[in-house]
Each structure stands twice: as structure tokens, then as C-alpha cells.
Nucleic acid binder design. Structure first.
Lengths: 336, 336
DNA sequence: CTGAAAGCGCTTACAG
DNA sequence: CTGAAAGCGCTTACAG
């Protein structure tokens, strides 16, 4: 037999509204009544129906995440799982849940998002990516629906976001290489249209300039986030240029491809050329040589994204509309 | 201004119940009325409130998954992400959603599960693991709540499950090695208390017996699912035994550790000793030599788990209480 | 083919 | 300190 608030009320000889107040531990209820009601609750094993609660409260106590097409195929990256873990860990303290949906492709993302928004099943949404002209962001802004994005958006002021300090992270990498004696450092990054590439490239340049190294255009090269592209870019680089003694990349997979090219061209890692990755994926410790990379702390990003979004939803004061999560350079055998 | 079914009804000059029927495309509504109502729905951008729907229907149109403690820390395994993807892809065709929660540890799992059950927020639950004496399973059984588990349970008859045919998979691996001329094949597996280890060990034995190879106790060794344990087990094996020319393992990480030990002891892979992994993790293609492994099709497992559970929830006829997902042996350079 | 009414299981403003 | 009533936004059995 199903037990509802009415049944509890009946057996406790009180009104349903009283039971409801006991449930939220309202100060206006006498201790005696609370004890009596709680006893019946326990006896009957009563648990409130959260659907009914959501309807009455007009709040689903749920956040939503749409797995984007791009997030899916990069299974190499533990990012998604770790991020989710950070989110769930944080929100369960507030009795919030996480609703997940997956988009088949880029266009499908908007469907998933609008469904989540319109169905009233979530109180807020976390976007795992931001694009240059982001339709998802535009839609959410127009709908005045609470959301937070992962990654630094163009129009920073308007929306909430969490991200690493990519510029600082890449500056660290480059400066570490400089201080260990590397003289000519190349940069292989993703599309320079991406904000994340821009930021990391900037960090690379800042480090060079700070140490009065020239910034050479020919040492900066674009590659997609694949092994093949890392390989291609590295071959291109090493065929034309001499004296390169380090290559920094913006992704472990690019670095892996790069390492393959370096070996194939007869160089040794790190004796002749040092290589660094980014994102500290599962791969990094298992490559040979193991790959120096940058840990981005995805769990912490998830936690902070949830935190900022939840605060906004609960109308709490936000000190800032964003949060920067620290990175950590993990030194391994691919650098000297 | 929020738009509800009442507002649509008012503007269309019909009753809310009629709008509701139009929404589910009830055959008892005239086409003229449907057209009229649909026009208003479109004009107002009306979307039903799914929370209210759930309450009225007593169905949340949602499945739940609890991330177990063990699932979390094996980030090497893309299993979780792929599985989730399979689930979401399948259920969205039925307008179902996926609710995710994470357990801090083994005991916390039951909390998460009972919360999901009692809150009425999910119509069914997917368990990512089954244990020997599984409290979660007991609880769900007692609650008469729909659920499906990943992995073959002890009391197969009672509950729904999806799994690979681990026995067949390992038999394939072993027979492939036999047919390529390997003479003395060792087995390193996880705890023999685990059903999955038992099944894989059985496959190994069946292959040997079928080809009239002796089953030697000394060639079968237990190790945890870590690199270190794979290393330890392999050293133990190779120190005591001669003429081993292949080692099959039940996990890529064990295989990775094993490969390290083989190299350190001065043997070549695969010339002297072939090695195989299992689960075809992200690692496998990137190791040197790249690792032969067994693809378990986690996405398909997720899809089938969702399918069987959804059918049960919808009271559809189930041909079977379980589903076996095919595995695929991926041959790479670690075997000859 | 359509509508009025009751109900899903809660919450909360109001009254006492 | 507590209760009766109305409401959250839907659905569906019943009546016509």
C-alpha cells in the first residue's frame, strides 16, 4: 500500500499541512507534535513524493547536462566522467539531482536544451562547451533560464562560467621548459578560432617574451585534436625548422602524434626534443616516454559549475559570475 | 508570462481536457479541433509541464543510474561514458530521461538507490555492478521496483540483466592464441570470487581442453585490477615457470603491468611472449606494442539495459529476462 | 466528439 | 500552534 502525506496525517491525528511542516522542520510546530508525526513517518516508512513537491514548489531540484557531440567522441578524455562526478558530489548536499541527456549532433543540442527548459524538469543547465556564436547560449539567454558554461565565453559579463586559467597554465609549461634550458620551443595547438587555443597560445607567447625569446610565426602551427594531425604538424615543423628542442601542445593526443613523428624522424625524446601535452588524459602516464601534461581538475570544474549555478538559482549573492579552477603541471619523462 | 494548458484551452475555445487529448493525438478528437488547438499551441509556444504530467500519470518517464564507487575510480575505462551514451540514445526515443547520482562508497549506494525509489523520481533503475550478496539487489527486489543489472547475477532467474558472454570471449582469445601456435598459455585474472573472473577463467579452460592442452593450476593466477598487480603476478609466473609463450589477462591494466614485467625480465613481446588484455580500454591502441584486447561494446550494453528495463516498465512481453551483447576480439601487435 | 469534475500528492497563505 | 482550503498543471473516467 502506498503511503502518502494524508495517510501519515490520518494516523497521527493531524492535518496534512501539519505533516508537511514537520517535514521541513518548521519552527511553528510544537515539539510534541513533531515527535508524534515523526514516529508515524518512521513507522510507515513514509517518503515524500518529490514529483508532487516539485509541482507545488515550482522547482524541480534538478540540474541538467547535455552531453554534446564533441564530448562523446573524445572518450580518451576522462573529462566527462570526472566532471559529472564533481557535479553530483556537490549538488547532493542540497538534495539536488542531475538529469542527463545526449545530443546526436550539434543541431540536436538545441532540441535537448529546449526540451529541458520547457518541460520544467530542471532548474538550471550546465553547458560543457561554448562556441564563438553559440546558439545554445543565445537561446538560454533569451529564455532567461539559469545556466553556466564550461569555458570562457566571448561576452564574459553576461553569463556565468567556470574555466581553467589556460593562459597561465601554458605560460607555466613554457617557462618550465625555458628554465630547464630549452632554447627553441614550438607550439602546436587546436584551431585558433577556439578561445581555449587563443588563451593557451597567449600564455606561450607571454612566457617567451618575458624571457626575451623571439616569438616566431613559423614555430606556431595549427592542428586538429587528433593523433594524425599532431603527427602531420610535427613533420611539417621539423622538416622546415632546425634546432627545435621542445614542442608544447594543447592536447595529449596531439602530443602523442607529435611523439610518433619525432621518433620516426630519428630524434630522441626528451634528449633531442621535449614534448608536453595538455589535459592530463588517461594516456599520459602510459605512453613511452610518459608524457608531461597539464591536469585541469575536471572534478573541481564540475563542482564549481554546480556551485555557481545553484547559488544563482537560490538567489544567493554571487561574488563573481565565474570561477577559475587551478591547473597543475604534471612533470613526466617526455621533458628534460 | 507562463503558458499552461488552461491558457491554450482558453484561446482555442475548448476545455483543457480537449487540449490534453490533442497533445496525445487522441483519435476521438476531430481534425478541425486538432488543427485549431495545434495552431494556438504553436502560436503560444506551449510545452507541457512534465512534472505535472508525471504526477497525474504516476510515471516519471525517467530511469536512474547510480555511479558506484568502483565505476568512478576506473576512469581508464571508457565504460561509464559509453554506457550512459547507449542508455540516453535509446531512451530518448521514448521521451525518457536519465537521472544520475553518485555514491560516495559502497554503503552510500543503498542510500542513493532508496532515495531514487522512494522519491518517485524514477520509474526504474540500472545497476552498473552486481555483487555476490548484493544488498542493492535485495532492496530493489523487496521494494518490487523495476531494475536491471549489468553483469550476470547469481540468481539469474529472478532479475533482469545484460552482459557480455565472458566465457565465449575468453575462449575466443585463447583459441586464437592456440591456433597461431602458442603452446603454453597462462591466465591472470581478477578475484576469483567475481562472477566475471569465473566466467573468463572458464572460457580459458574450455579452450585448452577443447584442444587437449592440459589445464595447469600453476599457470592460473589472481591479481587485482591494477598495473602493479599485473606486474607482480607476471614476475611470479615467469620466475617459477618455463616455456610460457602467452599470457591472457582479464583487464588491459593488468596486461599493461604484465607487459612491463615481461620486458623487465628480458623477454620480447610478442616474439617470446604474447599478451592480451580485456575491455579494450583507451590504453590498448597506445601502448607499445599496442595491445590485443576484447571490445565489450559498452554502448550496446547501455542500450540493451535500457531496452529491457523500459519494456518491463511498459508491461511489454519480454522474450527473456536478459540480453547477451557480443564482444569482439581486437587483434593488435602484442600477439603474434 | 467534447466538457466538467475529480484526482495525482504535495505546499502555503490565510484564518483562528 | 494548527487546520481547511486553494492551488501547482496536468490526465482520465464519466457523462452527454
Amino acid at each position: 500500500m502506498k503511503v502518502t502525506i494524508r495517510e501519515v496525517a490520518r494516523q497521527a491525528n493531524v492535518a496534512p499541512s501539519t505533516v508537511s511542516r514537520v517535514l521541513k522542520n518548521s519552527p511553528s510546530i510544537s515539539q510534541a507534535t513533531k515527535d508524534k508525526v515523526n514516529e508515524i513517518i518512521k513507522k510507515l516508512g513514509y517518503h515524500p513524493n518529490e514529483i508532487a513537491r516539485s509541482l507545488a514548489n515550482k522547482s524541480s531540484q534538478t540540474l541538467g547536462i547535455v552531453m554534446t557531440a564533441s564530448a562523446e567522441d573524445s572518450f580518451l578524455n576522462p573529462f566527462f566522467t570526472q566532471f559529472i562526478l564533481g557535479v553530483t558530489r556537490y549538488i547532493e548536499n542540497f538534495d539536488y539531482s542531475l538529469l542527463l541527456s545526449s545530443a546526436k549532433n550539434e543541431e540536436d543540442e538545441l532540441n535537448q536544451i529546449s526540451r529541458a527548459v520547457n518541460s520544467k524538469r530542471v532548474d538550471g543547465i550546465i553547458l560543457l562547451t561554448v562556441r564563438e556564436q553559440d546558439e545554445n547560449v543565445k537561446y538560454l539567454l533569451k529564455s532567461q533560464f539559469p545556466f553556466v558554461v564550461v569555458g570562457r565565453p566571448n561576452n564574459e559579463g553576461d553569463i556565468m562560467w567556470v574555466d581553467n586559467d589556460n593562459t597561465k597554465a601554458m605560460k607555466d609549461v613554457t617557462e618550465t621548459l625555458i628554465s630547464s634550458g630549452h632554447k627553441r620551443i614550438a607550439f602546436i595547438g587546436g584551431s585558433q578560432k577556439l578561445q581555449v587555443t587563443k588563451s593557451r597560445l597567449l600564455g606561450y607567447k607571454e612566457a617567451l617574451q618575458r624571457h626575451e625569446y623571439p616569438v616566431e610565426k613559423d614555430l606556431i602551427i595549427e592542428a586538429d585534436f587528433t593523433e594524425e594531425e599532431g603527427y602531420r604538424a610535427t613533420v611539417e615543423l621539423l622538416k622546415k625548422q632546425r634546432d627545435i628542442d621542445a614542442i608544447v601542445t594543447t592536447d595529449d593526443l596531439i602530443a602523442y602524434g607529435s611523439m610518433g613523428a619525432i621518433k620516426d624522424l630519428g630524434y630522441q625524446i626528451p634528449q633531442d626534443i621535449s614534448v608536453t601535452g595538455f589535459n592530463n588524459t588517461l594516456l599520459a602516464p602510459y605512453l613511452s616516454p610518459s608524457l608531461t601534461s597539464v591536469e585541469i581538475n575536471a572534478t573541481e570544474l564540475g563542482c564549481q559549475a554546480a556551485k555557481i549555478l545553484l547559488k544563482h538559482i537560490c538567489d544567493e549573492e554571487l561574488e563573481s559570475n565565474h570561477h577559475i579552477v587551478d591547473t597543475k603541471l604534471i612533470l613526466r619523462s617526455s621533458t628534460k
